[in-house]
Design a protein around this nucleic acid. Structure first.
Length: 460
RNA sequence: GGCUGGGUAGCAAAGCGGUUAUGCAGGGGCCUGCAAAGCCUUUUAGACCGGUUCGACUCCGGUCCCAGCCUCCA
């Protein structure tokens, strides 16, 4: 039985889909004006793990993740670069897809772009106007009237008067209430624009997710997620829009992924303390990054540091070392210990507890290492299981030997030649020579390992 | 000020009212020509103060501290 922590009531609760044959999940995706950083990576990877698990447990899952391809930052950046917004956003959408691939993230079922759904947004704003929840300000912008939606604040646990008392409410004379937010923005002359009943303009940020989730999934669906910083105001506003327009419950379960921190501070573009996925991929392989991202629970903060990613790399290598050299072909499946799989599944069923799930992988690895000499069939069976469960999380996707050798600057044949030379030295008991060759290779990042089956090598 | 989370061993990170988390790192041993990998073993815990309980890291209350949101942000 799957339990998920729901931001709506700050509790773990049993997940019961509206329709067990068709689970709907919508995740707020990227605003594509720059490269994705590690914070984005965490959201992509976590919801990838979440949807993989949902797909294992329900016959059909519709996973929608939007692309915000129109907003102020995009317009500003396009002007800076002297290019049109589509040239800019297409470039960063491609980059995002490449990054996802590196991280082993499977594509969502639908990735709608905001600019393809402008008509849906206009319909929704019109609907809100009819219901007295939207009005046009003096400057021509259309605003949502927050005071007219009585449940405003239910997701984030805020109430309007506390927000009013806060110091950081912006003063916008065109609004009836400072907390009202923009649904439709009137275009300035040189900006991208679409026709609407309120004049040429573009949508506000929040309306796209309401319109697209309602259109591509339903007015009422199972799971809506995103980064924790979206809880307020973005998701709060989505609720106001969708429930205001449709007069029915919008989302059953709200999920929010914690931040990637740098020196215990949130990684963000405004703080300029961010590392792009590409930056990090220069020094680590994608699977190491993925391991790092799932090594803490999704709601906890995750500190980005070299030490922590190095730790992830060592840990992942331990798993690959365990499966390395086993034939992965075993007829006797009764040798597989189903207890591991049960515990693995119940870890994920407990609000997607990936650290717990990973710890079971290490238990299997240990068992493989214990059995591999005296009971190779059992070890092979366990290694099949380890790979299978690892794949479930999107790791251990590579051939162990290839993975452990990757990134070597020396060619396979050069290394083999050195190993042969060393073998000759060893057989004539010239251990000084033998050790010298091993040390030379070590300096070049190659580790040699002698076993009864001969000498093998891997990357440091 | 309001609202969320959280404070676990050298580092990272979980579960759990009583019994080894797990990974990395460190010590000792086994294996090895020596290593590496691996196995065995071992050292470091639960911010603080009360309460409940036969027993609390785990439940309850309080104190202190940290992060996040309340402005665009994943």
């Amino acid at each position: 039985m799957l339990k998920i922590y729901n931001t709506l009531n700050n509790q773990k609760e049993e997940f019961q889909p509206i329709d067990a044959n068709q689970v709907g999940i919508y995740v707020c995706g990227m605003t594509v004006y720059d490269l994705c950083h590690m914070g984005h990576a965490r959201v992509m990877v976590m919801f990838d793990v979440i949807t993989r698990h949902l797909r294992r447990n329900f016959p059909n899952v519709k996973y929608v993740r939007n692309i915000t391809d129109i907003d102020d930052k995009i317009i500003t950046r396009a002007i800076e670069n002297n290019e049109d917004i589509y040239t800019l956003t297409n470039r960063f959408i491609d980059a995002m897809h490449e990054d996802e691939k590196s991280l082993g993230v499977l594509s969502p079922d639908i990735e709608p772009r905001a600019t393809d759904s402008i008509d849906k947004m206009i319909d929704m704003i019109e609907n809100l106007s009819k219901k007295g929840l939207a009005y046009q300000g003096k400057n021509g912008d259309v605003f949502y009237s927050v005071r007219n939606f009585k449940e405003y604040g239910k997701l984030s646990g805020k109430n309007l008067d506390d927000l009013m008392a806060g110091a950081r409410v912006d003063i916008e004379s065109n609004k009836k209430d400072p907390l009202d937010f923009v649904l439709w923005k009137k275009a300035k002359s040189d900006e991208p624009k679409w026709p609407s009943p309120w004049g040429d303009g573009r949508p506000g940020w929040h309306i796209e997710c309401s319109a697209m989730s309602n259109h591509f999934i339903s007015n009422h669906f199972d799971i809506h997620g995103g980064g924790m910083d979206l809880t307020f105001p973005h998701h709060e506003n989505e609720i106001a829009q969708s429930e205001g327009a449709n007069s029915c419950k919008f989302v059953n379960t709200w999920m929010h992924v914690g931040f990637v921190n740098v020196d215990d501070e949130k990684m963000s573009k405004s703080l300029k303390n961010f590392f792009t996925i590409r930056d990090v991929l220069k020094n680590y392989d994608g699977e190491t990054l993925r391991y790092f991202l799932i090594s803490s629970h999704y709601r906890s903060p995750l500190n980005y540091s070299k030490t922590n990613i190095d730790g992830a790399q060592s840990a992942l290598k331990r798993l690959y070392n365990a499966i390395n050299g086993l034939n992965n072909k075993v007829d006797d499946l009764t040798l597989i210990d189903t207890n591991f799989e049960e515990r693995f599944n119940s870890a994920l069923n407990d609000d997607f507890n990936t650290p717990m799930a990973l710890s079971i992988l290490f238990e299997i690895a240990k068992q493989i290492n214990i059995e591999r000499t005296n009971n190779p069939n059992k070890a092979s069976a366990l290694s099949i299981q380890l790979v299978e469960l690892g794949n479930y999380l999107g790791i251990l996707e590579y051939d162990a030997d290839e993975y452990l050798k990757q990134g070597s600057e020396l060619s396979e044949s050069d290394i083999s030649k050195k190993i042969e030379q060393r073998e000759e030295a060893r057989s004539s008991k010239d251990f000084a020579m033998s050790d010298q060759i091993r040390d030379e290779l070590f300096e070049l990042g190659i580790i040699l390992e002698d076993s009864v089956n001969g000498t093998t090598w891997r990357r440091k």
